[in-house]
């Protein structure tokens, strides 16, 4: 290091910090900062890519191979190959969009939320951020908002991928392209946002609770992929347990996907995690309630806990 380069006070510094902008300004500043962080963060792109590849593979690729070769695989066992084609065309997008979201997609969004909130504890950056201008709630609100934007982006990318893939299949198979009605498509997209939003908010909450991204990710995966399924299995054997398992986050998300036409456990081409336990309306309300509660509890914890 040359001493000459270590300047202390360039003239351009004067008046550099903007005037106080209140909680809304703090929220906007934090959201912009968090969006920058998530955009530049390789982990976010890896998670989004993994989800899109999973969606492409399980919603379209395997089923299309089975249809084209006349064979059957684990994901379409018992379904005549010809019956697979309608689900691969653009008209079926509203029912296909949410198929992988309650379980595998939800787990990936959980990881996204857990990393977004928990990494600030892991790297010690929350300590510094919370001594900067935005107050705690606007500062944390920026993280929630940025995660929300990421969820919207992932759902939009999923929709674009589904449209592109199904259109390609229709063209290759010489099928006429019939676009889905706007209403069902909007309902499905809204359901996708709720499911992914809920799991991402759950990840944020567990990231804040544990103050550790690694522990949060581990706990979240065990819960969403193992514990809920075990509890539902026990619920099938013991009466009374189902009153609890019927309102678990995974059950609500799976029921919402099922109500949107993704197919339930009894449906041979249904995806894991898709359920028919609750009707669409109650399932959507429950998922939305979980989303709000997870985000609110995480914000309250950030507001009141000592920053270590």
């Amino acid at each position: 290091m040359s001493t000459a380069t270590m300047t202390s006070a360039p003239a351009a510094r004067s008046g550099s910090v903007r005037s106080a902008t209140g909680p809304l300004g703090g929220l906007v500043a934090s959201t912009r900062a968090e969006l920058l962080r998530l955009r530049k963060w390789p982990a976010v792109w890896v998670l989004a890519t993994v989800w899109l590849l999973l969606n492409l593979t399980f919603a379209y690729l395997f089923n299309y191979i089975a249809y084209a070769t006349g064979s059957s695989g684990f994901s379409n066992e018992g379904v005549p190959p010809d019956a697979l084609l309608p689900d691969l065309l653009p008209a079926a997008i509203p029912s296909v969009l949410t198929g992988g979201m309650p379980m595998f997609g939800g787990a990936i969004m959980f990881i996204l939320g857990a990393l977004a909130a928990g990494s600030g504890f892991g790297w010690g950056t929350w300590k510094t951020v919370l001594t900067q201008r935005p107050r705690r709630l606007p500062a944390f609100g920026g993280t929630l908002a940025a995660v929300g934007v990421a969820v919207v982006g992932v759902v939009a990318a999923t929709l674009v991928l589904d449209v592109a893939t199904s259109t390609l299949i229709a063209v290759v198979e010489g099928q006429s392209i019939v676009w889905p009605a706007l209403g069902p498509l909007a309902e499905s997209a809204a359901g996708a946002l709720l499911i992914f939003g809920m799991w991402a908010a759950a990840g944020v909450l567990v990231g804040v609770l544990t103050r550790s991204p690694a522990l949060a990710v581990g706990l979240g995966l065990v819960w969403s992929l193992v514990v809920e399924n075990l509890l539902r299995g026990v619920g099938n054997l013991l009466s009374g347990i189902e009153y609890v398992t019927d309102v678990l986050p995974g059950t609500a998300a799976g029921s919402l996907a099922g109500a949107l036409g993704a197919g339930g456990a009894g449906d041979p081409d249904g995806a894991p995690g898709v359920l028919t336990v609750l009707d669409g309306g109650p399932a959507a309300l429950l998922v939305a309630a979980y989303l709000v509660v997870f985000a609110a509890v995480a914000a309250l914890l950030m507001r009141h806990r000592d920053v270590v």
Binding site: A12, S16, R18, A33, Q132, P134
Partner: peptide, 13 residues
């Protein structure tokens, strides 16, 4: 750049 946005400091900082 992340902290500059949090603080509201200009990018030249």
């Amino acid at each position: 750049r992340y902290y500059a946005r949090v603080l509201g400091a200009p990018i030249s900082d």
